[in-house]
Every structure is written in structure tokens, then in C-alpha cells.
């Protein structure tokens, strides 16, 4: 028995290590590329090892973190077309939009999930029908969305006599990101809230707490880890979103995926080095957050589809 268990342990580590290598290979390549100069990005033969095959450089990182745009001396660029190194703008825009959208979506979705769980709000089928929102491919509504967003200001001016823009604004994208991630928030939160015994709420209510207080003091703290998990998932989805941002912003708002896609140069085509450097830099915080809530992640991701 113990020998079989030991054998299983070895087998487990072999398989998991194999997958680890598969996962890490492209990631390592990205990190490696971020330390390469232009001629080493794509090369014959492949340049694998720093110092042996190629001279590692911090040029890419210096380029993307350079504050203030173009350098007059050209020291930090390989050619003039590389001037648009507004990574800070991309980070800030993406950060603001994604954070607000994810949090708002979480609060709205969690509240609705509570209502669904406790009062069957929206009827039995509501959680299912709302999934259709997520199934809509964004390209299907991209152009109508563009028309809609650009004609909304006229509507607001005519009806409310206020000037609001939606196209190329933070809130325009935020609203859309809230809606497109709500279905997942509702599903995930529904699972967590369903698992909270009602007796606790009844007790709180008996002691005179209002419904809102009960929600705030009893329910939400109990599902806090679930909320963190949901937040991470929704954050990742929004953080990666490309098509809608590409269609509905420009030139004032610039999210990271759109910015990354712009990293092309007239001479070299794609600027793999700076792209890899940005990729490395912006992935790290997400990974760290994931690591911090890992314990909850591996428990809370079953969308409530488990008999407890």
C-alpha cells in the first residue's frame, strides 16, 4: 500500500512537472524576450541563454517606463516611429476602468445574487437568461454600440439638456464592462450566498437589524472570500478585453490590450521586446493577487455546482 502510494506520488510529480514546463515555457520566453534587443527577438538560430547567446539589455524596460514620451536624443528608441510609449497612460486607464467596472459589477451582481437566492427575484429562470448576455459575441454589437454611444450625447442634450459623452470615455467602457461581466458575478456569488445558512440572517433580523445591515454585517462578510475570487475572475476578463476597447475608444482612452497592439514599428513590424516587457510587468500584480487568495480560489470556483 505504502509503496503504491509512493509510486503514485512520483507519478503525480512527473505529470504535474510536465505540465508546469508546458505552462512556463511561453512565460519564460516572454520574460527572456523582454531582456532582448531587437536583433535577438526572432533569430536564426534561436537565442536561448542570456550572456551566452545574447547580451541581455534593460532597454525595453527603460523604454516602457520612460516618463514623458519621446526623447530628443533618440537614446531610448530604435527609430522615430517608436515614440508612442505612453505605457503609463495605458496602465492608468486600464487600471481605473477595470477596477471600477469589476467592483461595480461585483457589488451589483452580489446584491442581485442575494435577492435571487433569498427571494427568487426575477423568477426561476433569471440566472439562465442572463447568461445570454455573456454569449453575445462582442463583435456583433461593436458597430451598433459605436453608433449608439456616439448618438447618445445628442439624445441627452435634447432631452435633459446636459452634455455627456460615452464614446471614448472611462464611463462608457466601464458601463459596458459591468454589463458583460455581470452574468459571471451573479453565478459565482449565487453559489457563495446559497451556502450561507439563513438562520444567521434570521437571528440578526430578530435582533432588529434592517435588511441592509444584515446584508452588510452578516452576509457579505461570510462570503468575503468568495467575493475576492469573483473579483479576480472578473478583473481578468476585463483586463484582457480587446475588441470593445478597440472599437469604443480612441484617442483619449487607451487600455493596455489596445496599447499593446499598437506596438508596431514601421521598420521592424512588431516590437516584441517592449511588448514582452509590458506583458511581464502587467502580469505580475495579477499573479500576486491570485497567489494571495489562492486558498479561496481553489475552493470557490465551482459556480455552486456541487452538493455539499
Amino acid at each position: 500500500m505504502t509503496r503504491r502510494r509512493a509510486a503514485f506520488g512520483v507519478f503525480r510529480h512527473v505529470v504535474l512537472s510536465a505540465w508546469t514546463l508546458i505552462v512556463l515555457f511561453p512565460v519564460a520566453w516572454m520574460v527572456l524576450t523582454s531582456f532582448k534587443d531587437a536583433g535577438d527577438w526572432v533569430s536564426w538560430p534561436t537565442r536561448w541563454f542570456p550572456f551566452l547567446d545574447f547580451e541581455p539589455t534593460l532597454l525595453n524596460y527603460r523604454q516602457i517606463f520612460y516618463i514623458g514620451g519621446t526623447t530628443a536624443s533618440g537614446e531610448l528608441r530604435r527609430e522615430a516611429s517608436e515614440q508612442a510609449y505612453a505605457i503609463w497612460k495605458g496602465v492608468v486607464d486600464s487600471g481605473v476602468i477595470v477596477t471600477i467596472a469589476s467592483l461595480a459589477s461585483l457589488v451589483l451582481g452580489a446584491a442581485l445574487a442575494y435577492a435571487i437566492s433569498r427571494f427568487r427575484t426575477g423568477g426561476r429562470n433569471y440566472p439562465y437568461t442572463i447568461l445570454t448576455v455573456r454569449m453575445l459575441p462582442p463583435i456583433v454589437i461593436a458597430i451598433p454600440m459605436l453608433i449608439y454611444y456616439t448618438s447618445l450625447p445628442e439624445f441627452f442634450r435634447a432631452v435633459f439638456n446636459v452634455r455627456v459623452a460615452f464614446f471614448d470615455t472611462y464611463h462608457g467602457l466601464i458601463l459596458l464592462y459591468i454589463v458583460t461581466t455581470l452574468p459571471y458575478v451573479i453565478w459565482m456569488m449565487l453559489a457563495f450566498i446559497d451556502a450561507v445558512p439563513r438562520e444567521l440572517e434570521h437571528a440578526a433580523r430578530l435582533m432588529g437589524a434592517t435588511r441592509l445591515t444584515t446584508l452588510r454585517v452578516v452576509v457579505f462578510p461570510l462570503v468575503a472570500s468568495g467575493m475576492a475570487v469573483t473579483l479576480l475572475f472578473v478583473f481578468i476578463l476585463n483586463w484582457s478585453e480587446f475588441l470593445l476597447a478597440l472599437t469604443l475608444t480612441q484617442p483619449n482612452v487607451l487600455t493596455l490590450p489596445v496599447l499593446l497592439n499598437k506596438f508596431q514599428s514601421a521598420v521592424e513590424g512588431r516590437l516584441y521586446g517592449p511588448q514582452a516587457a509590458i506583458g511581464t510587468v502587467v502580469t505580475l500584480p495579477v499573479v500576486v493577487f491570485g497567489l494571495l487568495i489562492q486558498k479561496h480560489l481553489v475552493k470557490g470556483f465551482s459556480f455552486g455546482m456541487i452538493r455539499r
Binding site: V27, M30, V42, L256, L260, T283, V287, Q294, L297
Partner: peptide, 26 residues
Amino acid sequence: LTIFLVPMMIIPVVIGYNFSMLLIDT
């Protein structure tokens, strides 16, 4: 667990560029 979750946290645009280097026939 930490390592396995990394790929979905990378922006797909970066993955696209990254793979276009990895996938050259040589």
C-alpha cells in the same frame, strides 16, 4: 497551483505576439 493559473492572467494580445515568435518553424 500558482504556476498553473498564470496563463489565464496574461493579456491575450501578449500571448498572441509571444506565440508568433515561438511558432516559427525553426
